[in-house]
Design a protein around this nucleic acid. Structure first.
Length: 419
RNA sequence: GUGAGCGUAGCUCAAUGGUCAGAGCAUUGGACUGUGGCUCCAAGGGUUGGGGGUUCGAGUCCCCUCGCUCACCCCA
């Protein structure tokens, strides 16, 4: 094969594309009902936007970004996630001068230079939502509930909702201290990765899968026990609201996120129908980010849905969506009939009816066979006889019923209005 | 970045180191001169991912390379 798509980058085409479109339309419908409006932000931004927001020492920034110089030598990066560009836009366009909270959603491709595997790609699509300007746990609960409603609308079952609070800039340092103190002089027993984490990001030790590390962290202090008064209240109220709204969830004190900007609430939706990359949606609060970006102090919360992963679940758990099929197929024999068919087809198409034609001088048989494979409802046959009589033969493929109709009456053919 | 597995027709897969690399499905045509699905027949379709080596002889063994997949890492 001479030309192939780049590693980890895939085409989306029928029939899958119809699953994607369905997901997108349901998302727009549900998010709209919560007052979220679409925002379109660029796919490329200045590199420092991502470094500042995601965090200098995160894996994404350290080794996963598509970064390159533009022709003027500025450092440009293909967005690895959607929150940073939206925050940049929120500040740059003074969107905080509109009544709070402001709520936005977006959909589009993200780019991360990683080794591809099941559910992980170099170009992948996310639907994301961000809400600015409200700190109350009520908003956290609404957002999680909205995510749940969206997934339910797609008939997705067997999903796990996990929530956690990782505190704020006041209480998290205390927890980090407690955690490193707990591990104390036993750090030698940690896996090499965790030994590294111990110094610059000890929270990550919590979700390490190496057995030795799982052993060592038994009885370790939990984040949720070290929250300051405000964070504790916030988390407590969120849990109460989730109960009120009947959203079953588990509290996972070991859930840490790979982006530095999160504060307080973090959450994740996972599915057992995926591979090792089983998070289908995830998000959290980022109350400090807007201010750090030079905007006014603005609490915020958001999440992102992984489209490929969602579609993967839909494909394994549900019957596939059908590719739209023609209402009418014109099988024509001879040049004159061909012209007649084209002419009628164009009239019908202008009314929004899906019509397909036969090509290439194919035999009637092969034309009808093609109509069948395209799953057409009706075949209209035009040949010499029909041209002479002015009456076209039709056949309904589903039940093989057939009949005739005058050329002038086709546009009111009753079959066009049945499903 | 690390590790493992796999590359043969459009797809799923056969072929002890030994003739001309096969089958099913799919595609196209025919049986049925202007009527789909079912059946039968036929045809097209391959640089066995690429390169080198061992051998009288390589799809098969060895080396290199490219690609895919899964996992680690990390994340949606």
């Amino acid at each position: 094969m001479k030309y192939t798509a780049l590693k980890g980058i895939h085409d989306i085409f029928p029939p899958d594309i119809y699953i994607w479109k369905k997901v997108e339309s349901v998302a727009e419908e549900v998010l709209s009902s919560y007052g979220f409006h679409e925002i379109r932000v660029p796919i490329i931004e200045s590199t420092d936007i991502f470094i500042r927001s995601i965090g200098e020492t995160t894996d994404i920034v350290e080794k996963e970004m598509y970064t390159f110089p533009d022709k003027a030598g500025r450092s440009i990066t293909l967005r690895p996630e959607g929150t940073a560009p939206v925050v940049r836009s929120y500040i740059e366009n003074h969107l905080y001068n509109m009544p709070s909270p402001q709520k936005f959603f977006y959909a589009g491709p993200m780019f991360r230079y990683e080794r591809p595997q099941k559910g992980r790609f170099r170009q992948f699509y996310q639907i994301g939502a961000e809400a600015f300007g409200a700190a109350e746990p009520k908003l956290d609960a609404e957002i999680i509930s909205m995510l749940k409603l969206f997934l339910e609308r797609l008939s997705l079952k067997e999903l796990n909702f996990e929530v956690n609070s990782i505190g704020c800039e006041m209480c998290r340092p205390d927890y980090k201290k407690a955690l490193t103190a707990f591990l104390g002089d036993r750090t030698d027993a940690l896996c090499p990765d965790c030994q590294r984490r111990h110094s610059h990001n000890p929270l990550r030790i919590l979700d390490c899968k190496v057995n030795a590390c799982i052993e060592l962290r038994k009885g370790a202090p939990q984040v949720t026990n070290y929250l300051c008064k405000e964070c504790k209240e916030h988390f407590g109220e969120l849990l109460a609201l989730l109960k009120l709204l009947n959203i079953s969830h588990i509290i996972n004190p070991n859930m840490v996120r790979g982006l530095d900007y999160y504060t307080r609430t973090t959450f994740e939706v996972t599915s057992e129908h995926l591979g090792a990359q089983k998070a289908v949606a995830a998000g959290g609060r980022y109350d400090r980010l807007v201010e750090e970006f030079g905007g006014p102090p603005t609490p915020a919360i958001g999440f992102a849905i992984g489209m490929e992963r969602l579609v993967e679940i839909l494909k394994t758990c549900q019957s596939e969506l059908e590719t739209p099929s023609p209402k009418i197929f014109f099988a024509t024999i001879g040049r004159q009939a061909d012209r007649e068919g084209l002419s009628i087809a164009e009239k019908l198409r202008s009314k929004g009816i899906q019509v397909e034609l036969g090509y290439g001088n194919a035999s009637l048989k092969s034309q009808i066979r093609r109509a069948d494979r395209l799953n057409a409802d009706y075949v209209f046959i035009i040949g010499e006889d029909e041209l002479k009589s002015g009456r076209i033969k039709w056949k309904k493929l589903k039940d093989a019923s057939h009949g005739e109709i005058g050329i002038g009456e086709i546009e009111s053919f009753s079959g066009l209005f049945q499903s």
